[in-house]
Design a protein around this nucleic acid. Sequence first.
DNA 1: TAAGTTTTACTTTTT
DNA 2: GTAAAACTTA
Length: 754
Amino acid sequence: MCIYKIFFKSKNENRKNSNREQNSEISTNDIINDLDINDDKDIETLLMKLSGRVKETNTNLINRGLKEILSDYSFDDLKLDDKSKKKILELKELAKNIENKIIKEPNYDATKNYKIDYANELNNEQLIAVTTTDIPLLVIAGAGSGKTRVITYKVCYLIENGVNPNSILLLTFTKKAAQEMLDRVNKLLKNKIGGNVLGGTFHSFANYILRRYSKVIGIKDNFTIIDTTDSADIFSLLKSELKINKKIDGKPFPDKKELQEITTKARNIETSINNVIDKFFYKYIDYTDEIITLIKYYEKYKKTFNLLDYDDLIIILRDNLRDNAGFLKAVQNEIEYVLVDEYQDTNTIQRDIADLIASKNEKITVVGDDAQSIYTFRGADYENILRFPQFHPNCGVVKLECNYRSNQNILYFINSIISNAQIGYKKNLYTNMQSSQKPIFKKFANERDEAKFIVDKILEIKGDILNYNDFAILTRAAWHSNVIQTELMARGIPFDVIGGIKFAERAHVKDIIAFLRIIINHIDAISWHRILQLIDGIGNVRATEIITSINKKNGIIEFSEFQNRKYYDELNRLENMYNKIINNDNIKIDEIFNLIYDFYIPLFKKNYGNYDEREQDLEVLRIITSNYESIEKFLDDFTLEPPNNKFHNGVFPGSKNNKDTVKVSTIHSAKGLEWNTVFIPHAIDGLFPSEKSLSTLEDLEEERRVFYVACSRAKENLFITIPVYLESYRGYTNKPSRFIYEIDPKFYFIEGND
DNA sequence: TAAGTTTTACTTTTT
DNA sequence: GTAAAACTTA
Ligand SMILES: Nc1ncnc2c1ncn2[C@@H]1O[C@H](COP(=O)(O)OP(=O)(O)OP(=O)(O)O)[C@@H](O)[C@H]1O
């Protein structure tokens, strides 16, 4: 029995699809002729083939044992080009330099009367990392070596040495990570002082500063932060307005998402659009001019309507810190110490921000692990970590190599994975832990069998000793756990899904957010577009016309000039709604919601099917917002860190989730976490590493690091599994992940005969 | 110009 | 088996 009601699914956003016939390219006869039918296994194979859209016949994995398969490595090795070779040499040189800067002894006064016994709770290197506060410090920490612990204790140490909590800046990868560390600080210091620390992501910090210093910077303080889908929607609008959407001799033009991707890539790795197209979107090289034109209009569009995208937040902050001495000084006066977590996943803009703020007296500590850099796809540059000494010549370095998380067998395994990396700073992770079991590798006929095995194992290992909380299923892509989720549900095992969830992108959720945004920024054109186009008779062109009129009146919402239009009644209703909200300074969030619903629900019912299912999302939104004092704060949080988990009964963002559940997560969302037992399903070459990352060495290296991050989450048990047949994706699997081939077989165990 | 219908091109990770 | 572009109709 399933004890959770899922409030939304990530499927069926809109449109009912007609059932089209599958056009199979291979005929039944071909398949039968292709096979010798000798036993049950062959028949099973045949049935599988007939049922799916199998394009290629490959019985390789079905009939051969894993041992045999893994003994012949047949992947093309990617050649290093000269540029990469040079880079690797340079990085090696940098790594040597790091070695020279290692600090050997802590500068710790044990006679001081601290609340925390630092020397006792930290190992020698950790103690050095915590107590070195007079010079810039780079902490290179291997997986599970206690970097979270170091940062947490360092915050305490700073506070205990008289640093004002609200002048400590703690930059982490997610808001949640910062919150958890600061909660821990509170516990350690037995007070509530940690709550005053400025903790959050680079983006949330940028937002905080930009709004407060808007005058100095020359922007309005009520800007709307738009997410990537909003950006894409702007591109879509511009494409049709500028009529830049015609194919040239059948070659497709980038779609709205791709335009957004090109834009953000260029800005995050700080290079030209030309370069990005040349390197990453070569198929669009013929459209370079049109793309550049569109992006120019995109930038203008944002300016006109007071919109900032994610990249704007950090770029505007960096540029102003760099170019405006008065502003820099003001920010520096607020901040005494800068701590950066997950430094390997910062980009150059973020690096600059941290450096600039700390530049006055070099009070900065950065913590990271280049082997765990998994966000280069969005502009992160793990070289930041290796180059830290270049930017801070008088820095010290601490290396944490003692792993407190995983048992010896898992450690051998993960060390073996990362030893195959071509790029990177070598660390020698060791542990004092006892060994239990080697990581297990196993194949299954199909996804259902894989799922069953995982669920059975969870129950078996859990027994009466462990909790569901001790288990995680980590995947490269969110959909890799689909069948497993079904199985968990069928078996009544409570679980939470984290990552890959697109709550904020659901149409009706975006609608509500659009209504709210306009309250704050009356000329938020992209939100106006959403709302106006809900009304019958208003499309792209009419919406633009109305928005232009609002903008001309500086954001006054007044539609009398459209009196003769057939949809005026609806415009009038909208105008009245906003007047009620805007003219009442003391209006509560709940009342705002009621007014919006009064207007929206009729349109909502008309525009979308499956009303009941969607309505629950609206309820979720109401509950989330009820925790907020202001719409502004809610909108900022919702956009800066959109919910990435599913909401079950009683579990909402903001509410503490103390439920005992198995975690089903993408690897990217599992960063920094740990579990007793970790499963990595679908470890199939082409899925993990992803097919898209096979062509360049850099991409492949990153995939390996993702694999490394996944495996290094495990404390006691690690299971890696592959289904031979994937019903939902291309049928037969070719090979297990190449990362498994790379590992010395003595470090893992192949379960079963096959 | 809007709205509805058919075709095409895809399945990676997220602040 | 979805989302967006392209095309068609009113
Ligand atoms: N000095 C220590 N003594 C005992 N346990 C420790 C010590 N330092 C860290 N640990 C434990 O080791 C585990 C891993 O620590 P932590 O999560 O801080 O590692 P991490 O470096 O952030 O890992 P990763 O980079 O892999 O995310 C935690 O369970 C932590 O409590």
